[in-house]
Amino acid sequence: MPTAQTETRRSTAKRAAAPDAIKLLKDDHAQVEDWFDDFEKTNSASKKGKLAKQICTALKVHTQIEEEIFYPACREAGIEQDMMDEADVEHDGAKKLIAEIEAGKPGDDHWDAKVTVLGEMIRHHVKEEEQRDGMFAKAKKADIDLDVLGQQMAARKQELMKRANGGAKN
């Protein structure tokens, strides 16, 4: 049975291994974009269904950690209200489309189109966050401890992914 000291060492090692907040978010972006590319390339209904499930789960978790941890830190650091508000609205639109995708299945009317449009929305959102004068660049310049934020976000992401996968390890 692990001791409290062993658990503390494991916890410290996990924190040390966590990427900074922006790297974590960019890694999520790249993964989801790859899945959207795979979705567009396949004709297999079962593969489309599996990819859509992965995409939707990843995006729900990603938006939640941004909204709970990253965006509030950006707002507190003084990143423009308009930029932050636009990101919130983009998240809301994505969440509505995700709910429609999850309520359907491959072969349903407009189901493929919904996944494709979600991909377009997400690519637009990612471009805005990652561009030279975007939110990530502003966060790097602001007084935000991106390492601590990354640790918090990684821990929350792990918790949410575990819950999304029915308690199973991801």
Rank of each mutant, 00 (worst) to 15 (best):
residue 159 E to I: 00
residue 147 D to I: 11
residue 127 K to Y: 09
residue 167 G to Q: 08
residue 124 H to D: 03
residue 133 D to T: 13
residue 54 Q to D: 15
residue 33 E to T: 11
residue 109 D to K: 14
residue 44 S to P: 07
residue 115 V to R: 04
residue 2 P to L: 15
residue 128 E to L: 08
residue 43 N to W: 09
residue 56 C to S: 15
residue 59 L to F: 09
residue 82 D to F: 00
residue 4 A to P: 03
residue 2 P to Y: 05
residue 5 Q to L: 11
residue 169 K to N: 14
residue 48 K to D: 04
residue 149 L to Q: 14
residue 60 K to M: 07
residue 4 A to K: 09
residue 125 H to A: 03
residue 132 R to K: 12
residue 65 I to K: 13
residue 82 D to P: 00
residue 39 F to R: 05
residue 158 Q to L: 08
residue 35 W to S: 10
residue 80 E to F: 01
residue 37 D to P: 04
residue 44 S to F: 11
residue 167 G to C: 03
residue 53 K to P: 00
residue 94 A to M: 10
residue 38 D to Y: 05
residue 116 T to S: 14
residue 159 E to H: 11
residue 93 G to Y: 01
residue 13 A to P: 04
residue 18 A to V: 01
residue 6 T to R: 10
residue 40 E to Y: 12
residue 9 R to Q: 12
residue 160 L to V: 01
residue 6 T to Q: 15
residue 20 D to S: 07
residue 109 D to C: 05
residue 19 P to G: 11
residue 148 V to N: 06
residue 67 E to Y: 01
residue 146 L to K: 10
residue 103 A to S: 14
residue 101 I to T: 06
residue 58 A to E: 15
residue 135 M to K: 01
residue 60 K to L: 12
residue 107 G to A: 08
residue 62 H to G: 09
residue 15 R to E: 07
residue 12 T to D: 12
residue 85 D to H: 02
residue 155 A to V: 04
residue 74 C to K: 02
residue 38 D to Q: 15
residue 123 R to A: 07
residue 32 V to R: 05
residue 120 E to R: 04
residue 39 F to Q: 07
residue 140 K to T: 03
residue 103 A to C: 01
residue 86 E to D: 02
residue 23 K to V: 15
residue 67 E to A: 13
residue 169 K to I: 14
residue 136 F to A: 12
residue 25 L to Q: 12
residue 27 D to A: 15
residue 159 E to Q: 15
residue 134 G to L: 10
residue 60 K to Q: 12
residue 154 A to K: 07
residue 144 I to T: 02
residue 67 E to N: 15
residue 107 G to F: 00
residue 28 D to P: 04
residue 140 K to Y: 04
residue 117 V to M: 11
residue 5 Q to W: 10
residue 62 H to T: 04
residue 129 E to R: 07
residue 97 L to Y: 00
residue 7 E to D: 06
residue 152 Q to S: 14
residue 26 K to C: 09
residue 18 A to K: 09
residue 85 D to P: 00
residue 144 I to R: 01
residue 8 T to R: 15
residue 136 F to W: 05
residue 93 G to L: 02
residue 108 D to M: 03
residue 75 R to M: 09
residue 64 Q to M: 10
residue 165 N to Q: 12
residue 124 H to K: 06
residue 89 V to A: 11
residue 80 E to W: 02
residue 153 M to E: 13
residue 91 H to A: 05
residue 17 A to E: 04
residue 49 G to S: 11
residue 15 R to Q: 14
residue 66 E to Y: 06
residue 74 C to W: 01
residue 72 P to N: 06
residue 7 E to F: 10
residue 135 M to L: 15
residue 58 A to C: 06
residue 22 I to F: 06
residue 52 A to P: 13
residue 80 E to L: 03
residue 79 I to D: 01
residue 121 M to Q: 06
residue 33 E to F: 07
residue 10 R to I: 07
residue 164 A to F: 05
residue 38 D to T: 13
residue 1 M to S: 12
residue 2 P to C: 07
residue 2 P to W: 03
residue 168 A to D: 14
residue 123 R to H: 10
residue 90 E to Y: 05
